[in-house]
Amino acid sequence: MEELLRISELKLNFNTEEGLVEALDGVNLSIKKGFFNGLIGETGCGKSITGLSILKLLDNNAIIEKGEILYNNKNLLGFSEKRMQKEIRGNEIAMIFQDAGSSLNPVFTVQKQLEEAVKMYRKASKKEYREIVIEELKKVSLPDVESLLKKYPHQLSGGMKQRVMIAMMLACKPALLIADEPTTALDVSVQAQFIQVLKNLKERFNMTFLYITHDLAVVNEICDFVSVMYAGRIVEDVSVRELFKNPLHPYTIKLVNSVLTAETRIEDLEEIPGSVPRLINPPKGCRFHPRCDEAMEICQEKIPELIEVNNNHFVACHNRLRGDDFGQ
């Protein structure tokens, strides 16, 4: 499998009025070319920050301590703001967010917004622009494109706005699309349609996605590979099938178990004791150890490394590294 982008040992802190927040602590993430790469975790685990740091769209109180983000053998962290804007953002790597409505300019029509996006990467006549725009909108399976062109963002529903956003991003033909919770605000029926649109895009244009979400069920529907994040670290890196069939990290096991299916009974649900730690003075060693049933002495002191325990199945847990227990 070819790697499109690789984050290694990324450590990132935020300077806040309450203290130093250790938001990302040695994140390793490999984005495989031509696949849906999932990044899952609960609120505050650092999944969105990871996405934003790829594009260097972080608030100015963020301090990158160390690490690199390699894209085409170039370290994006070394790029200047100007270079990021010119070479990377939009045309190489694009990003869509949960709230598509606020990413669109309310005073321009759909046509105008898309034309602006197209103009960034190619020159054409007015009529050609229109055709390109229509082409882009058709790629995201939007119905009745002609009448859509003249509409303003507020006249569109949430699902349509999200698709227009995607169409806009596609206009610049990015190699990687980072989607940060794109369906969270959508209804299930619209979500199902939207997931289909993304899948079709991947098939047709061999695109690569980094899909950030908290919803494991959605991950199953769309992703090929998943990285599970907990408190600023990747704890497990696995194919989607293995994630549900054979999760190894104690956190992942509990997380998979918390997902409701139609067959779930409340009595069978397992609770994770305690709550997500604050990232100001986070727990030493493995950040999950205070909530872990299997915690050993070493877990309190040594940070477990992300190690391949099965074929393409990485996990960061001292318990799984002893060699006698692969969870099977």
């Binding site: 029926s189 199902a192 349609q193 289909q196 199953n220 099938r241």
Partner: peptide
């Protein structure tokens, strides 16, 4: 029927194969 079939499923053996609900509310 359509609504129930749109639910994303956390079971890797069962995935949404087809869109059952057209359009939006």
């Amino acid at each position: 029927k359509g609504l129930f079939k749109s639910i994303p499923n956390p079971d890797p053996d069962k995935k949404i194969e087809k869109i059952y609900l057209k359009g939006e509310v």
